[in-house]
Amino acid sequence: MEELELIINNMDVTKFDIKTDHWVQVIHIINPHNFYVRPTKYREFIQKLELIKPTIKPSSVSEHDFVIYNMDQTGQEAKYARGKICYPSNKNCNDKFNIFALDYGYFHRAIPKENLWECHQNLSKIPPLALFCQLANCAALSGNDWSEDSIDAFKYYVNNERARMIILDKTFDKLVVELINSNPGDIATLMALTGYSTLGYVHNVISRMPTVVPQKIYFKFKNINIDEILHVRVQSGKSLNAFYVAEVNDYQNYIKEYDTITYYTKKEPKLIEEKFKLNAPVCIKNDLGKYERAIIKDIIVPETKAIVKLVDWGKEEQGHISNMKQIPEQYLNLPVLAIYCSVEENQVWDNSLHRLLCPGIEFLIQIKQLGKEFESPNIVKIIPLNSNSSGSSTIYRY
């Protein structure tokens, strides 16, 4: 553990910004639009971690917990990895768990409880080293479905060797990249030339012309449409006239990113007085020492205190400039989680709906009228997840 601690203390986890390049190893392939890479500079850390001999058992095991676990259950030599508990492999049994290997990018299923150990705090703070990627300029021959032949061709060109990865774009949870290794040309071009894909822009178009890009100072908001039905969970709110929800899939992605947001924010400088102004996007530290994305809504004390709106929760709270930092660029580009809502007039007086305004409660909403970001709410119709045979609604908590 001492050798591992020394490596951890000297580790510099890279910020994977657009237009940067990195040497990586492709470690898990689903298809050309869904694969994982790991920067080669972390090889020594992984090798040491695989040989660690954990001794402390966790006092309890719950979903989303970080653990150290034995990946190689059949080999004579144990091989260890960092993992995140996803859920029990059997809902009626808590002795086996499905685990996502944070540094490898794939799931291990039905890991017995005796193969789990406590993950040291220093290890759990390191973001996942497996990066979820999509090959840019590469589309499937038949719509969105990748044939086995195309997947095999991609694996062949990757060929278990290191590659130069150039980040062209990024989405909420994925890097859109170009890969170049010892092959004569980048892998997307080779896939197209050999008839296994079509070559074309399948990511946000990036201008190749030199231009002056103005500094972006605003958050993006999720695109929603009239009559669209969303499966959501309550984030905050006390009245059906004004409450905040998040789409369940977006929330689950946010939970995966939660510790990583804090990790990268800690590397940012503290907020300077010149940027302590109305509508400025910031990250603010909460009572748990984690950083949340926020907008400054009102200055209470000049240069020191403000009311901020937590954009992923919809809540407002008072904050001090000493707890605020500049927001990392990659998290400024991610759409905010909270969707501002108000129910239709004919549902406002439905007393049974008021009980839904508890964080974590899930239901469906249908967008009836579009609002404007946090300025005016989206008018929605609330729909229970399902109904029982008597016709009464059943609402499930996530």
Rank of each mutant, 00 (worst) to 15 (best):
K267F: 03
I379S: 11
Q215T: 14
M165I: 02
N181R: 08
G319F: 01
N351G: 07
I166L: 14
A130I: 07
I365W: 05
Q215E: 10
I217P: 00
V13W: 01
N144W: 05
E228K: 11
G185A: 00
F107Q: 07
E375Y: 05
K368G: 12
I68L: 15
I272C: 09
S207A: 03
Y340R: 10
I367C: 07
I361H: 06
D12A: 08
E161K: 08
C119P: 05
P88T: 14
C341F: 09
M1C: 07
Y104H: 11
K220T: 09
S342P: 04
I85W: 00
A136F: 11
L364T: 02
I395G: 00
N378C: 10
F221I: 12
D65M: 13
L175W: 12
N115D: 14
L116V: 07
L370Q: 10
P269N: 13
Y258D: 03
E2D: 08
P127D: 01
P128E: 02
G200C: 04
T194W: 03
E257N: 10
L230I: 15
A338N: 06
I217S: 11
K275H: 12
N323D: 07
Q366L: 11
Y80I: 06
N122Y: 11
S352N: 10
E362I: 10
H64T: 15
A110W: 03
K368R: 15
W349S: 14
I255C: 06
K57V: 13
S62Y: 00
R293C: 11
K48S: 13
Y106T: 07
Y157D: 04
E161A: 02
N31M: 12
V213N: 03
L175G: 12
C86I: 14
D186H: 11
K275V: 01
E148L: 14
N183H: 02
I379M: 10
N181C: 03
V380W: 07
K297P: 00
